[in-house]
């Protein structure tokens, strides 16, 4: 099982060092973002995730979360959770990787602001 929040903590820490001193981390946004990560984690627990990566984009300060899986399904039980997360993101991307494997990516608003 993946622990998204641990990975996110590491990526954000590195991003904060790289973007300093021009940009600083918005702690409030980061706390909210971590809550959403927990929801995503539970959403993907039900769908067999083969890999996960997080990336801080230095051009626009956005965060991109990518999941590799072979199937992703939302039904009436998970709809509310999924809607809360999807509503928060800027864009979603579903890309084919290989037979029985695809990558679902979510791009979230910037966590860093001008210092």
């Amino acid at each position: 099982m993946i622990n998204i929040v641990d990975v996110i903590n590491e990526v954000v820490e590195m991003g904060t060092e790289d973007f300093a001193p021009v940009y600083k981390l918005n702690e409030k946004s980061f706390e909210i973002f971590k809550q959403y990560c927990k929801v995503i984690e539970s959403l993907f627990e039900e769908n067999d995730v083969k890999g996960f990566s997080a990336q801080a984009n230095e051009d626009d300060m956005t965060m991109k979360l990518s999941f590799e899986c072979s199937y992703f399904r939302i039904d009436n039980d998970t709809k509310t959770k999924a809607a809360a997360v999807f509503r928060r993101c800027l864009s979603m991307n579903v890309a084919w990787l290989e037979d029985e494997l695809m990558e679902i990516s979510f791009t979230f608003p910037p966590l860093w602001e001008r210092a």
Partner: peptide, 12 residues
């Protein structure tokens, strides 16, 4: 997604 009953994605 809210209007539909189910939503699914998979690779071909």
């Amino acid at each position: 997604i809210n209007i539909a009953d189910t939503f699914e994605v998979f690779p071909l």
